[in-house]
Design a protein around this nucleic acid. Structure first.
Lengths: 249, 249
DNA sequence: CTCAAGAAAATATTCAACAATAATGATCAT
DNA sequence: ATGATCATTATTGTTGAATATTTTCTTGAG
């Protein structure tokens, strides 16, 4: 092929090498994945569109191994659907999928809170209580939803530290996948003044009492609440994609 | 290197190509992984032993790509620990790890039962009730523990069918990892006459009432029960490895 | 119009070469 | 002798090309 024409619509990049791909010491595939991620989230690449390996090789000037690996990374993130022997295409996020993602989050965050309640030292529990107080305070001051999200995720992440390596891997996996829908979460939090705070208070009380089952149940309820709200918001907006919000820590 | 001497102790195989690796149409890496799996479970390869890529290449007569992939597969199954830039070694399964595995199983099976209770049709619920009756009946007849395990897993698998693709992937992943400890499960079931059957009855009742939270809670309790029993058995036996039992469906 | 056979296109797998990293051992100053 | 520094070596990580397999498209006969 020749030097290619890069003016047409639907092109992957605006120039042959779309990004410096400067990450020299870090695997190149990550850089390619990152670049594609941006274009998927900014809707330059539209849902359903095929991501051909050969095309990626040309556009990024890399071999098929890295193009292939980049697609797998995006597949893990849920940004592309990989069909066996057929290729990868930009995935359209449906309300159902986001809904189901919260089902998983509820199960795994419930696990995290349960083991934290059982295994954390008294000092660690005290820290969690302080964090929750901070969260409730921020909620009372009606601080931006992004801050609420960040605080919540920080608490859950810390608690997940008490879980096994396998569990932590699953949790960070599902967190990667939901990161791209936080804009909806923000809307949900802003829309509903009551919010999930009553559940947070119950988590707090259960931590004090070291009642792992109760803490876990209340944590799950936080996620079920968010599940309902996010689904409601997505449906009312016709579930069309939004620009992605700032990600959590 | 030359044709190699295959008589020494600590060799990976008894001949250069340890298994026909006949699976022509199926990825060769799976065959290699299967072969290694057997030798790990039969303790021919002992915990802590390094699995060198170059060695595997020689022993199985394959390229480094497939050796590498085989090790990754075993890593997913939890049979080897892969250390960055250092290699893969046969993992020693600790009681703590098995214990934590049941924590994950409880969370994910709880999810499966919850969504099944919410989403299954009346006919499907009826099937689940019948399956549970069959399980309870088998328990009453004191049938072999393997059968109890198989029936339980069958029910959970069917219910997991109502969950999202992501959730199903996680469930089958954790199932793969626990498959190798079913021998302990069998012992646990045989040792404890009461068993988890009271919890199963509660799951049944909750399904009838379509009470998803209660069904989920009772399902988790089944796993927490098994968690305690398996840990107890492993500790009492010094947690030394057992020959693996027949796997579930 | 339907269906089957073959050609074309795309992905899947494997390998071999090169790069980067961690372990080993030798050398030298103290 | 001891300890630190640095070259050497063994081992894994990464990548591009070659080959195999699968899917899709085309074409032509009935």
């Amino acid at each position: 092929m020749d030097k290619t024409k890069n003016h047409g619509a639907g092109q992957l990049g605006t120039s042959k090498v779309a990004e410096p791909v400067s990450l020299g010491s870090v695997p190149v595939a990550n850089a390619v994945a990152r670049s594609l991620r941006e274009r998927i989230q900014s809707n330059v690449l539209q849902p359903g569109e095929w991501l051909r390996e050969a095309r990626l090789c040309r556009e990024f000037g890399v071999g098929r191994s890295v193009a292939r690996r980049a697609l797998r990374i995006l597949g893990e993130d849920g940004l592309v659907d990989i069909e066996e022997n057929r290729g990868a295409r930009v995935s359209a996020t449906t309300v159902e999928e986001v809904f189901d993602l919260y089902e998983i989050r509820a199960a795994l965050y419930g696990l995290a809170v349960r083991v934290a309640c059982m295994r954390a030292s008294d000092a660690e529990i005290a820290n969690y209580l302080a964090d929750i107080d901070q969260l409730l305070e921020a909620a009372g001051e009606e601080q931006p939803a992004e801050r609420i999200i960040a605080l919540s995720e920080k608490i859950f992440s810390a608690m997940a530290g008490h879980a096994s390596a396998d569990a932590q891997k699953m949790i960070s996996s599902v967190r990667r996948k939901t990161r791209f829908h936080y804009s909806y979460v923000a809307l949900a939090i802003n829309a509903q003044a009551a919010g999930p705070y009553e559940h947070w208070r119950k988590v707090r009380a259960a931590l004090v009492a070291r009642d792992a089952e109760q803490a876990s149940q209340s944590a799950r309820n936080i996620l079920y609440f968010m599940q309902g709200e996010v689904a409601r918001i997505m449906l009312s907006r016709g579930s069309r994609p939004l620009a992605s919000a700032a990600a959590a820590p």
